[in-house]
Nucleic acid binder design. Structure first.
Length: 151
DNA sequence: GCCAACGTTGGC
DNA sequence: GCCAACGTTGGC
């Protein structure tokens, strides 16, 4: 069971959008190291979502929703479906990651341009802890059970 | 807006 | 296969 961190520019595609839509294809990655990481993803694995450029913080957790496949936009690259798991209780800013002794090995810090990277379970757990835990999304609206007219 | 870091391209 | 030039990312 691996753990991951992906970056997105929130003005292009934010975690809020993922939560609203409920499911997305993570594609458009055009870097071989990031692609190789994408290819290693397995359904059910957890993914920290980081907002680059605007925010500069980890905001939520997603889940790999299927096996990686060829990016429809470019045969040499890879896409993977994701679905939201929940928001962190509070975002965890890059500055905090940088100042946390247990997170100095993060690729996010050491290789700032990489957009898809593995994190250890310890790193994952620590970031979630700094974020005050995962706030599960409300389940999709269940169809209301029709109330019986009869008593 | 600037610039450092990094990746890619292409001439040789 | 090297390396200079160039482009992109992303924090500051």
């Amino acid at each position: 069971m691996a753990f991951w961190l992906v970056k997105t520019e929130p003005d292009a595609y934010s975690f809020a959008t993922l939560c609203q839509v409920g499911h997305t294809r993570w594609d458009g990655v055009r870097n071989y190291t990031a692609r190789n990481n994408l290819r290693l993803m397995k359904p059910g694995e957890r993914v920290l979502v980081y907002h680059s450029n605007i925010g500069l913080e980890v905001v939520g957790v997603a889940e790999v929703a299927g096996n990686p496949y060829v990016d429809p936009g470019h045969a040499n690259f890879t896409a993977c479906d994701m679905k939201p798991v929940g928001w962190l209780g509070q975002p965890v800013p890059l500055s905090l990651l940088k100042s946390d002794a247990s997170l100095q090995g993060l690729a996010l810090i050491r290789q700032s341009r990489l957009s898809v990277m593995p994190v250890s379970q310890a790193e994952f757990d620590r970031i979630v802890e700094l974020g005050g835990g995962i706030q599960p999304l409300l389940p999709a609206k269940a169809p209301r059970k029709p109330r019986s007219a009869k008593k």
